[in-house]
Design a protein around this nucleic acid. Structure first.
Length: 796
RNA sequence: GCCCGGAUGGCGGAAUUGGUAUACGCGCACGACUUAAAAUCGUGUCUCGUAAGGGAUGUGGGUUCGACUCCCACUCCGGGCACCA
């Protein structure tokens, strides 16, 4: 018998598909289009993680199914290659990030290709390619033009020893990850993007997209829309106008407000410095707060801290009572107005604070109307996006600073502003990007006045390139624009309300930031009439992580990292694909088990054995013509029925991403098929057409082996060019149905009924069943509940 | 701490969304084939009990004829928390 040689088969078909451009999407086609998307990977030096294929295979199954369903499918991939790990590697080794990136992407490409994912490699993109980031910079200039990119002072993490700014990730327990020095906060001018201008629409438009409910919820919570009121409190000591404005979601409780709390950073504190009698204490407290994170500050289980601003008082506008003013770290400067009115009778945090500092608590106060003392206002938790990085490996922000003209955008014709080569990748001592050291590059001419000017040395965050990459796939080589409008209209759809990438799958960990940022960019481009749809993604799902054996995180330090190359080598890509889809529910994290992968291999081998038998007997004339078969083991109808049920199940399960149960049902079918062969010694019990349908529904999961078997059965064209089978309902109906009989909700027995029996007849039958009679002997039957085609429960 | 998930046999998980808990797979045991091994196939495999029957879906309560599924309170685990991607 012909052996299953995964190495030969997989290599062979990967070459054929490549040569025939089987998976290349065609711009414009009579077929309906389908745009399926995965999050393009960051090409890390560690190579592909077994978690990557999970997402890629999942969407590959969807994409392959869509092709068989007659769609013109775009399933692209690229590299999100700017970022910290490559930069830190460069700092450590002195190697050019370009060289490192090239090496890593080459490795990733080879690994992904070995899995037989149906990506359209002709559209491969790379965020670090100047031809790509030219357009990232161009989009930034549009933000600048519309006033949505601006500069503001922000606090950053600062390591006083290394003299560099640090990313949050590089701060471990308040210490610098590299040298262990306590990290300080510093103020620095940063480029910002005004995402808050889009907050309302980012929230509202979630109603128009098909995201998993928990993804929508996560987005909504992040945006944090809430309705409240802004109320002005007069400062009476010292007399000052204007007073202080607070934001509250409960303006109705104003009669219970017994003191005010300001964020320690509130400008009023600095302004009234001279009037605050206990300034030295206040100053000390402000310093302490400065190095705390927002999480530490707002944690509700820590002891409340704060300090009164002695010597200044405010007036509650509702009851005209004089109240004290405090500062406390649990009030954050960037939410609301950075000031609250405290109603200890009604708010747990205010109550804790009042109890600790012995502040008055008024329990039974008069309720006010919503807008009696202030103005209704909608507030968002969402903050503007800090868009500057003092780093090397990112897109240079394309502006110049001119003493005469101020900030001047680089003219669009001069894009891209290419990242120059440097010798040293470390940030400078002053905390500037390493680009600041290249005087030749920094010194330039002002595009406006032609005078001397300096280039901006900040670069963009990694999120920039990934905020619009899906658009570039529709027209990846365009030199005139980021993507042709016609292409965008074709691939995203022309209806602003319903169009977008058809299906976008990614990690749970991206359901807030990346997803929100790219929705923001897309909406901005939509407003400029540069993209045809209001939302980038019509549908969004997410997959869980693959953990190491035993459910711990897979990491180098734990030594439990699984190399996909090795799995492909030993078991084959098809087995790895099937295993990753079978190991657990797609949406949840699941632990890897090398011991278990053998089950998927056995399944593929079973399919292979049946196929080899079917093909050899088909080619020998020993097999009687279809429809003329007889014999004691004649079980074609039974198998056909199971096949049709399986087609239905697999068709539906793929849509819900229930890949594990789809595979389970195909395993059952394969087992039954093989049994049918064994019982008769031939494959006469398997209809050739049935077996082919089985191969078709399996092909999205295991594309190589099914393609090989397909051709062994005499098919000249690729299985990719066939059409998705449809179940035959007439072959699926059961005339006899098994009904469970329960007594008081406990399983007792089962009876067979005919599909057309009426309820009374079934109940009667159940009550006259031997086992039932035994159990209800001497008891009164109170009630008989019948659930159609399922069960009967007798209550006694 | 806050937000979003999750918890079912020795292990990964299934359960038509309120209707036979443990499908499918791994592992294990036994059997067939084999000189033997591997592969493959078959049988068994939650638990107590000889059986009849009882118990079990993280914990404690509740709703219901009936709860893994719904409600309330808790425990533990994973992800996110704005400069990791």
């Amino acid at each position: 018998m012909k052996e299953y040689d995964h190495k030969k088969i997989e290599k062979k078909w990967q070459n054929v598909w490549d040569k025939n451009k089987t998976y290349q999407a065609k711009d414009f086609s009579k077929k309906p289009k389908y745009f399926s998307l995965i999050e393009f990977p960051y090409p890390s030096g560690d190579g592909l993680h077994v978690g990557h294929p999970r997402s890629y295979v999942g969407m590959d199954i969807i994409s392959r199914k869509r092709r068989l369903q007659g769609f013109n499918v775009l399933y692209p991939i690229g590299w999100d290659a700017f970022g910290l790990p490559t930069e830190n590697f460069a700092i450590k080794t002195g190697k050019d990030p370009r060289v490192v990136t090239k090496k890593n992407t080459d490795n990733f490409r080879r690994q992904i290709k070995s899995l037989g994912i149906s990506f359209d490699w002709s559209r491969e993109i790379n965020t670090t390619d100047p031809k790509y980031y030219k357009w990232t910079q161009w989009i930034f200039l549009q933000f600048l033009k519309k006033g949505l990119a601006y500069k503001a002072k922000m606090t950053i993490n600062w390591c006083p020893k290394d003299k560099t700014g640090l990313a949050n990730e590089e701060v471990v327990g308040g210490l610098c990850e590299r040298c262990g020095t306590p990290v300080e906060k510093r103020e620095k001018e940063q480029w910002m993007l005004a995402i808050t201008k889009y907050a309302d629409r980012l929230d509202k438009d979630l109603d128009t997209v098909d995201y998993l409910p928990q993804i929508k919820l996560a987005q909504r919570n992040w945006i944090g829309r809430s309705e409240g009121a802004e109320i002005d409190f007069k400062i009476v000591i010292p007399t000052r106008t204007p007073g202080v404005r607070v934001f509250t979601t409960r303006p109705d409780t104003i009669f219970g407000a017994t003191y005010l709390v300001l964020a320690p950073e509130h400008e009023l504190v600095k302004e009234l410095k001279d009037k605050i009698k206990n300034w030295s204490e206040v100053e000390k407290y402000i310093k302490e707060v400065k190095n705390k994170t927002d999480i530490e500050r707002t944690s509700t289980d820590k002891v409340k801290t704060g300090i009164e601003l002695k010597g200044i008082k405010a007036i509650n506008p509702a009851n005209k009572e004089e109240i004290s003013i405090w500062i406390a770290d649990y009030v954050l400067p960037h939410y609301g107005t950075g000031a609250i009115m405290a109603v200890p009778a009604d708010d747990i945090r205010d109550k804790e604070f009042a109890e600790k500092f012995k502040l008055p608590i008024v329990e039974n106060y008069q309720k006010a109307g919503f807008e009696d003392f202030g103005k209704k206002i909608t507030k968002f938790k969402l903050r503007d996006w800090v868009f500057s990085r003092q780093r090397y490996w990112g897109e240079p922000i394309p502006v110049v600073h001119c003493k005469k003209c101020g900030i001047v955008p680089v003219p669009e014709r001069d894009l891209p502003v290419e990242l120059p080569k440097v010798k040293n990748y470390e940030p400078t001592d002053s905390g500037e990007s390493p680009l600041a050291n290249i005087t030749k590059w920094v010194n330039t001419k002002c595009p406006k006045c032609k005078g001397r000017a300096l280039r901006e040395t900040d670069t963009m965050p990694n999120w920039a390139g990934s905020s619009w990459y899906y658009l570039r796939y529709t027209d990846p080589k365009n030199k005139k624009t980021f993507a042709n409008k016609k292409n965008l209209k074709y691939w995203l759809g022309s209806d602003p309300a319903t169009g977008g990438v058809n299906w976008y799958n990614g990690g749970n960990e991206h359901t807030t930031l990346h997803l929100l940022y790219s929705r923001f960019w897309h909406k901005f481009l939509f407003d400029l009439k540069l993209v045809p749809t209001a939302e980038p993604y019509k549908k969004r799902t997410s997959h869980g992580m693959i953990l190491g054996e035993g459910g711990v995180k897979m990491s180098k330090s734990l030594g439990n990292v699984i190399n996909p190359d090795e799995m492909v080598k030993i078991y084959g890509a098809d087995t790895l694909r099937v295993y990753e889809m079978f190991m657990g529910p797609f949406s949840q994290s699941v632990a890897w088990s090398t011991e278990s992968i053998i089950g998927s291999r056995r399944f593929i081998e079973k399919v292979w054995r049946i196929g080899v038998k079917v093909s050899t007997q088909k080619n020998s004339s020993a097999l009687p013509a279809s429809g003329l078969r007889h014999g004691p083991n004649f079980s074609v109808p039974k198998l056909s029925k199971l096949l049709n049920k399986t087609i239905k199940k697999v068709t539906e399960d793929i849509e819900g991403m229930y890949f594990n149960t789809a595979i389970s049902s195909m395993m059952i079918l394969a087992t039954e098929m093989e049994k049918a062969c064994l019982s008769s010694g031939t494959t006469e019990n398997i209809e050739l057409e049935d077996y082919k349908k089985f191969l078709q529904i399996l092909s999205p999961f295991a594309p190589h082996v099914t393609e090989e078997l397909w051709s062994m059965l005499g098919e000249k064209k690729s299985i990719n060019l066939s059409s998705w089978p449809k179940e035959d309902k007439s072959l699926m109906e059961d005339e006899e149905i098994k009904i469970v009989v329960q007594i008081n909700g406990k399983f007792r027995t089962e009876i067979m009924i005919r599909a057309d029996d009426d309820e009374e007849k079934i109940k009667k039958e159940a009550l006259s069943d031997e086992t039932v009679l035994k159990h209800i002997l001497g008891k009164t039957v109170k009630k008989v509940i019948y659930v159609k085609n399922r069960l009967i429960n007798i209550v006694v």
